[in-house]
Amino acid sequence: MENNNQKNPPIIMLIDDTPEDLYINHRVLKKHAVYKEVIQFSMATDAILHLQNEELEHSAIPDIIFLDIHMPLMNGFEFLDAFDALPAPVKHKCKIFILSSSFDQDDIERSKNNPYVKQFFEKPLTKEVLEKVLI
């Protein structure tokens, strides 16, 4: 996979309402990951709008999305609901990981039960987590 990634580095999308966390996550990615592009959204609604865009080429669809749960206006779960309505190519290509400070079991269970969520990680994003995601 690592070879794969090197040949075809992923597009990574970060959705988090906290600027510090976006900064940390971006910095961890820069330090420990190989990627084609990092797209950041502090509003989940903007992220959905981006993914809904019909002009979005297949190559521009993110491969990995790190999604926070607790966000104003549209939280992580609402994003997942909206994601369900997105075009099939988008849904097929995006792998969603929850990256949240919540350790509430209900949040964790609910995340794990969502078909689009690959895994649940506690913040902060670390090298160990990235290794699991990018393998």
């Binding site: 906290t18 510090e20 966390d21 940390i24 996550n25 910095r27 961890v28 607790h70 400070s101 919540s102 350790f103 509430d104 506690e122 913040k123 902060p124 994003l125 670390t126």
Partner: peptide
């Protein structure tokens, strides 16, 4: 309690991330 614990924890995780750096 739920929102407080979350509100308390959210900045903690940020601090942890920064401390890691």
């Amino acid at each position: 309690v739920y929102s407080t614990s979350h509100d308390l924890r959210s900045p903690l995780t940020s601090v942890l991330g920064l401390t890691d750096f």
